[in-house]
Write a protein that binds this DNA or RNA. Structure first.
Lengths: 214, 214
DNA sequence: TCAAAAGTGTTTTAAATACACCCATGA
DNA sequence: TCATGGGTGTATTTAAAACACTTTTGA
């Protein structure tokens, strides 16, 4: 990965790093893996990432890396920011396009993982390798911003869900409670949900109405 | 710029392209230049852009390109999006980090340009080379979004300005008129301005109060 | 009848919008 | 005194926030 200059043109390695979020046990968790032994941060925790291949766009590469390294397929991704600091990677010029990814617990999307990976709760995240702490900063800020103005919460939920489950997602992401009545009013008035006209029972409680995103 | 693969590692050329805006004669204009004769779109209009050098970050490269090619220094820039399409550039793998830049008419920031450049009004922009039309889409959308929620308008104005001049900037960027009383109320209540407690006369009209951004 | 979560309305406050006239200046 | 842009206030509408009790279910 030594610097490459041909005909006075400078070539860089293009990489992607992805902050992949998922809610587990009412906690916002991030997927991290051990940096491979060949890398300068061998064995340390880092975001899932890797080099972009000749036949891939950055977006493609994120999908492949999540699938290969963590067994996650069919995931929502969004580009965040590109980090082009000269000495980000001690091995040479590596420019990384950072992505946000969101998923939910759904067995069909998780197959075998090829890397030691772990879902770490945001609030007990260890120090990460490279400049990945900075990428995480961007990612969480971006996610918190977008959940207010868009329907990205859908990617953190299964297809069908109750309003309470939806509210939980919002609360977990922004990190504080919301008023139930105001929340339901705003969501329903916004028109982004469709009622399934069915309910779901859970234990001994009153059944809850099911919704899907339009 | 042919594809480079060394030790099974794929190297790409990193480039930047910048959508640089400026208001001239009450029109939002974009800086474009002729693509150099060595390029696949020789002679066509394109955004200002070029390769990132080994000792530069993407941000650095944008500043250098604007300075060298168009003589613009000390400019506000902001990263927009990275375009990594495989065949963006017929010569090989060129990944471009797109930037937004904003400036205003201020002689000290404009020196000699090295390239045939032109400020084109947004609404009569010619077809651009590469995927630069797409970059422009991103840029104008982003600018319109940000002017509502931030004080980026400051970069399109000189240090001191009147409220009417500020309102003109908003109107020109978003493309429609605003109510004068409501505009002034919102801006003054937001607290982003400081009154200079001076006025400026222009022609035969009542003098206008001068403000600066805090 | 109890526990546990589901569900439901009104009042208050703040922000955005709509709207029209007088003021200061130099010619 | 006129033309030109500078400057100002109130009423209405809309959106956000605060706030507490009743309903449904299975054990």
């Amino acid at each position: 990965m030594k610097p490459v200059v041909k005909n006075r043109i400078h070539f860089a390695v293009l990489a992607t790093d992805v902050a992949c979020f998922r809610i587990i046990d009412n906690q916002l968790c991030v997927l991290i893996g051990r940096a491979p032994s060949s890398s300068p941060f061998a064995g340390e925790w880092a975001l899932i990432g890797g080099m972009v291949r000749p036949e891939e766009t950055a977006e493609d590469s994120v999908s492949r890396l999540l699938s290969d390294k963590a067994g996650i397929k069919n995931i929502y991704t969004e580009q965040l920011h590109t980090f082009s600091g000269i000495n980000r990677d001690p091995r040479g010029r590596v420019v990384s396009v950072a992505y946000l990814a969101l998923t939910h617990i759904d067995p069909q999307d998780i197959s075998k993982a090829r890397l030691e990976t772990k879902w770490y709760p945001m609030n007990s995240l260890p120090k990460l390798a490279y400049d990945h702490d900075e990428i995480m900063e961007h990612a969480i800020k971006h996610l918190r911003f977008k959940i207010h103005n868009t329907n990205v919460a859908r990617y953190l939920l299964p297809h069908e869900f109750t309003l309470t489950e939806l509210q939980n997602v919002y609360e977990i992401v922004i990190g504080k409670g919301m008023d139930k009545r105001n929340f339901r009013k705003k969501i329903l008035v916004s028109g982004m949900l469709k009622s399934m006209k069915r309910t779901r029972k859970k234990g001994v409680m009153r059944p809850a109405a099911l919704y899907v995103f339009k």
